[in-house]
Amino acid sequence: MLNRAYIGRRLPATTPVEITEEAVAAFAAALGETGGHIPPTFLISLTLPASDALIDDPDFGLDFSRVLHREQRFSHHRPLRIGERVSCTVQVEDVKVVAGNELLTLRTEVTAEDSEPVATVSTVLFVAAGGDDEEQSVAARGDDVEQSADVTPGVAAGAARSPEPARGGEAS
């Protein structure tokens, strides 16, 4: 179970990161985007790493091996610009219980160096219940809920009981 005391809590703002042409071009090329645009989903490559401190915090109780990416939202307050530097502030917005599983909503404010709001990025993670049925794979359990979810990072590691930490893929 996630620690409910964290609801409303904010992580410190991340060190500003430059939006480089190279990073955007690689992201766009992977999606087959050839128009020279910044993909509207590009900020995911910044917002999910920004929540690392939360995932690493044992007191919060988030087991990434039981997590599926369920929902994603981007509110763009103004266009992102190449060459600007932005920072991310992650907040634990909500934890809901659905059929014994938990839905965690993380809300990340992306701001420019002059504090101008750039975007609000919300990520909903489905956290499968632990306990007696833990041997069942997360992917299978995800299908039991009305809306299943994309399988994120930890899932493979969790179901396979891999010794690898369930990291490296928070952006799923």
């Binding site: 690689a26 992201f27 995911i44 899932v155 893929g169 952006a171």
Partner: peptide, 17 residues
């Protein structure tokens, strides 16, 4: 190949992809 490229660009290297 698209998924390999996206994994690198997004930082999501989960092997299930």
């Amino acid at each position: 190949a698209d998924l390999v490229a996206y994994a690198g660009a997004s930082g999501d290297q989960n092997p299930i992809h």
